[in-house]
Nucleic acid binder design. Structure first.
Lengths: 222, 222
DNA sequence: CCATTGACTATACGGTGTAAAGTCGGCAGA
DNA sequence: TCTGCCGACTTTACACCGTATAGTCAATGG
């Protein structure tokens, strides 16, 4: 009996799936900075270079976890009308980006899109086309919606506050280095609106989304 | 006569302004990767650590060049109606982000906004308020417009093609690893629309912008 | 039994931001 | 004129990063 049988499978072997799973977890917990090849190796119980046996470079790892995020997004349902389908998809993207804030700058810039990514694009275009959009109009609608969705996530991403009192502190520290009254409209906005109880910037998302969907609908109905 | 007078001012002394000017140039020419403290020092004819005498850390340098970009954006004109003022501002932001692609992820995430940044926000809010928007509606409009503007810049930023033939090559290499016909709608979209001569994704910007402005106007008119 | 090979490790290189200490010329006061 | 200070910059060092290259070693097939 060798020591090998005494400790069978003391470590799971590396697979692409296992690597991506741990990479996703690292990024989710500590942002992209926390996802270094060395830390990834350590999390897997392996040297950093072992990952390079399964992935050509770090960029391919990023490709992989971005496609995992795409896989979490609900595809537009086939049965529903385009407007509710697009609305639900938009919220699903927003939610996925909220769960994976590190992904916001990466989702749109993949040179090697994965299958979930392509399937997602295919389904959205298919939904719009099935609803009677011609190609140009489908392009307009898709471009407009995605710019808004990703842009909202981007502007919301690093908001350094969650609560109303956080906003107050933040605003004060931002305006503090400048003469009082230098930015009267901004000051008004903060005191009269952003600091009001019940205000949550995240609520703006659906408001703007509906403005866009209504605008597209009016053009399409003409 | 010393050698000192023979070579007076052989190097300009460092100032915050000069550092930021060179930092901006480095970022414009080679992206954020090209802006390291060592390269910045080298461009200034100085050791990297010299910059730290004028800036607490690299983040403060980034704060500085982001505010230079904000300074390039046209403030909404006071005289014009809100819709043309917002339209011109949006295009001005789009142009500034096109000149400084590296800035796209940074503009919205500054914890220490500079004066140009704050002045910009103040002017936009002031323009909307002067046009009769109440605070909530001004917040809706501003949030919607900026999400779209920055989102469009983000989705357009890393598009790896400029010409129609580039699109064809790109699309082929993207779909090549997958079975033919796996993504029929996407394939249709590319062949029937994106590859048509005269198509330019950048044109989508103003289309979507007008949909949004019209939508806001209709709400405001009610 | 031996050669091969798949999966991983070890080492090294050039890069990063930045803390800490050292240098040095010009200037203020005695 | 000498002295001590101090602003502006340099030197050195550390811990990290992605990754090229070479080495190790158990399992496997002939």
């Amino acid at each position: 009996m060798t020591t090998r049988t005494a400790q069978p499978a003391r470590r799971l072997p590396l697979t692409r799936e296992r690597v991506l799973q741990f990479a996703l977890e690292l990024a989710d917990q500590g942002g992209l900075d926390a996802l270094s090849m060395r830390k990834l190796g350590q999390a897997l119980g392996v040297e950093a270079m072992a990952v390079y046996y399964h992935f050509a470079n770090k960029e391919r790892v990023l490709d992989g976890i971005v496609d995992l995020v795409f896989g979490e997004i609900d595809l537009p349902a086939a049965g529903a009308d385009w407007e509710t389908a697009m609305r639900r998809r938009a919220i699903s993207v927003r939610d996925a980006l909220a769960r994976h804030r590190w992904a916001i700058g990466l989702m749109e810039s993949r040179v090697n899109p994965g299958p979930a990514n392509l399937r997602h694009h295919d389904a959205v275009i298919g939904c719009l086309r099935a609803a009677g959009f011609d190609m140009a109009m489908a392009a307009h609608a898709y471009s407009l919606l995605d710019a808004y969705i990703y842009g909202f996530a981007l502007t919301k991403m690093n908001l350094p506050f969650e609560t109303t009192t956080d906003i107050a502190e933040m605003a004060e520290s931002m305006l503090e280095p400048f003469p009082l009254g230098e930015y009267p409209n901004l000051a008004d906005f903060i005191t009269e609106h952003a600091m009001k109880p019940g205000y949550d910037f995240a609520d703006e998302f659906e408001y703007g989304l509906d403005v866009i969907l209504d605008g597209i609908e009016r053009i399409q109905d003409r």
